Computed example of a mutant assay.
Amino acid sequence: MSASTLRAAGMVTVAVAALLGSAFALGRSLMPEQPHRGSGAAASVHAPHYGDQPPSTEFPGPPAGHGEPSPDASPSAPDNGRQADDSEGPYGAEVSTGSARIALTFDDGPDPQWTPQVLSLLKEYGVHATFCVVGENAEAHPDLVRSIVADGHSLCNHSWNHDITLGERSPQAIRDDLMRTNDAILAAAPNARIAYFRQPGGAWTYPVVSVCEELGMTPLHWAVDPTDWQVPGADKITETVLTQTRPGSIVLMHDAGGDRSGTVEALQRLLPELLHRFQLEALPTGTT
């Protein structure tokens, strides 16, 4: 083969390769991007449904040097009934019971219509849960706070008036809010132990976690959110809890903040089924 023929063949090869490369690049540009995949508890946020604060749909970013679970991290499978890798949510908030047992938590109460119905069902099935109490509701309904404690449930501070933006305020303002809420709870039940704090909307920030820990409370997030605050109906609430709950799960539901008839109906179905599959517990409060 002559030199001129070889040169011509080489030019054809280069041209074909360039065309193929352009087509490949074009094909990539036309492919839809994959949707962002969250990591369960650390990625879930529910919008405000109580109080006068504007909706919040995303977590504030972590401060420099403070770690947060990667939003693309896959949940780890349980290891002998434990969830060591799933025990921390945003800014180190607890999202696992640390054992094979699961914990039901109820936010935004107490409410004179819905809290007694929830308490009645829990008592019927012999289940203890954790109630995340809003301060102004505790002040308005101290008898319900006493009922919660008398039935053996544990308590969690859920801010004074469900302020989604609480974590953006100054440390002193955050401290005042949390202490005011604790004072209202303790005024109703002086011997109660308030071991946890749950940030409204799950809108955690480093300052709010720091303050709650300084006050002796553990930041409490969740692993299963059936979004009952959106009133999706008992069927949807039941389905979500049953399909997503696994050993160590902390389940989020609400006993106030709106129409909770769907939650109550779902709870009637959930309690016998959850008791068949798991052991249920109130989150421990430690010693007083």
Rank of each mutant, 00 (worst) to 15 (best):
A18G: 15
T227V: 14
A43R: 10
T5S: 13
A138T: 09
H162S: 06
D107Y: 01
D72L: 15
R198F: 02
G38M: 06
I102M: 04
I194N: 02
A192Q: 05
P190H: 12
P247R: 09
L20T: 05
R198I: 02
P90M: 15
A234M: 08
Q199G: 01
E88V: 08
T5I: 13
G248K: 05
S70I: 01
Q279R: 13
F24E: 10
Q172W: 00
A234I: 00
D86T: 09
T227E: 14
P90A: 15
A8P: 01
G152C: 09
Q244W: 09
N80C: 11
A266Q: 02
V14K: 02
L280H: 03
S87I: 13
E94D: 03
A100K: 13
S154E: 08
A100I: 02
E58I: 06
P110S: 06
F131M: 08
C156W: 04
S96F: 02
T238A: 09
D228H: 04
R198V: 03
W160K: 10
D225W: 00
D228A: 08
T130Y: 05
Q117D: 09
L6H: 07
P232I: 09
P75F: 02
L252A: 09
E124W: 00
C156F: 06
N137I: 00
A47S: 14
P247Q: 11
G262C: 11
S210F: 00
T205N: 03
I194V: 15
G89A: 08
P219V: 07
D183Q: 15
D143G: 14
Y196K: 08
A3H: 05
T288S: 14
V149H: 07
E33K: 13
L274T: 02
S39T: 10
A282E: 01
W222G: 03
D177A: 12
L30V: 11
A184N: 06
W229T: 02
D259A: 07
H141A: 11
R198M: 01
H141C: 03
V224T: 06
